[in-house]
């Protein structure tokens, strides 16, 4: 659905990003990870047809982007963009704002209204439809912005920092919304520096620091899913040996009542628990290993600094 080849962009002689190449498949949730100023938003704006790359080319939802040619109206029609700030008109109601953008996307009047109301319902904003945008909470505004990005039924949705500046409750709501979209097999590119968000929502993530550092599988597709921490009620040496003997287990390390297990397959957790119970151990909890992405990220950032990219 997205194929970027060597995308580069500079502003006033300062390179924002260069030689970016990656692919995003249909229905995939792809993360763009990087620190502030890494070129994530610039990349997203090139994919949305707002910036023309200085070099390189891309195909987004079947539309071409080339050096000096940002992609035209057809590209913008096929892409939904969640901008960094919601960007609505304060004196218009939530529904009026959605209708305005629906018409700008060329939807017929009746269709625009039906879609806008359906999206307000979907994001639990139906009761806010007649309220002025200025009166909505931050979380509501952000959900409304996500609704706008979906109004015209885009083939690709680009989300720029969807939870930045939101309180925990609003963050949770917005993440649930994105998870719903992912479940609907919408092709999503999520631009963020929140590792937890990437871990929860994405299947792969590109690490960017001006240039592409790496692309990793994440979440249940990534290396983190192959590492679990098992808490036992008491140390149990025999149980450790039994787990280590399982063919699905690559390595086991015991630290008191905690077992750190490296799996060969992400779906082997039930076998591990069964082996422990069969050996007489009592399992208190099984935790996914959440630090793998962070370790990769920090290591890549350190390398980027050594190479003078940051």
């Amino acid at each position: 659905m997205i194929e970027a080849r060597g995308l580069s962009k500079s502003f006033n002689g300062r390179r924002a990003c260069w030689d970016l190449s990656f692919e995003v498949g249909k229905g995939e949730v792809f993360g763009l990870l990087g620190p502030n100023g890494a070129g994530k938003t610039t990349t997203l704006r090139m994919l949305a047809g707002l910036y023309a790359p200085d070099a390189g080319e891309a195909q987004v939802a079947g539309c071409a982007i080339a050096a000096g040619a940002p992609g035209g109206a057809e590209l913008r029609r096929r892409v939904g963009l969640l901008t960094e700030s919601p960007g609505f008109y304060d004196r218009l109601t939530a529904l009026e704002n959605l209708l305005h953008f629906a018409r700008l996307y060329g939807l017929p009047r009746a269709d625009a209204e039906a879609r806008a109301r359906r999206l307000l319902d979907r994001f639990q904003l139906h009761a806010q439809g007649d309220r002025l945008f200025a009166e909505l909470s931050r979380g509501m505004k952000q959900k409304l912005a996500i609704a706008r990005a979906l109004l015209h039924g885009p083939q690709v949705v680009l989300l720029d920092e969807p939870t930045v500046g939101l309180d925990p409750e609003a963050t949770r709501e917005v993440r649930a919304t994105i998870a719903e979209l992912a479940a609907d097999r919408t092709t999503l590119v999520l631009c963020t520096h929140d590792l937890d968000e990437v871990e929860r929502l994405c299947s792969r993530a590109a690490f960017i620091a001006g240039q592409l550092l790496a692309v990793h599988a994440v979440g249940r597709h990534g290396p983190a899913a192959l590492r679990v921490r098992v808490s036992l009620t008491a140390p149990h040496a025999a149980a450790v040996s039994r787990v280590a003997a399982l063919p699905q287990v690559a390595e086991v390390r015991a630290e008191g009542t905690e077992l750190h297990v490296n799996l060969r397959a992400a779906d082997a957790v039930p076998e591990v628990v069964a082996a422990l119970c069969a050996a007489g151990a009592r399992v208190e909890a099984v935790h996914p290993h959440r630090d793998a992405l962070e370790e990769s990220y920090l290591s890549l950032l350190a390398q980027a600094r050594e190479r003078g990219l940051l």
Partner: peptide, 14 residues
Amino acid sequence: ERRTLEPLLATPVS
């Protein structure tokens, strides 16, 4: 100033 320019320019409007 109101940050509505980017969403406006992201639409297919010429």
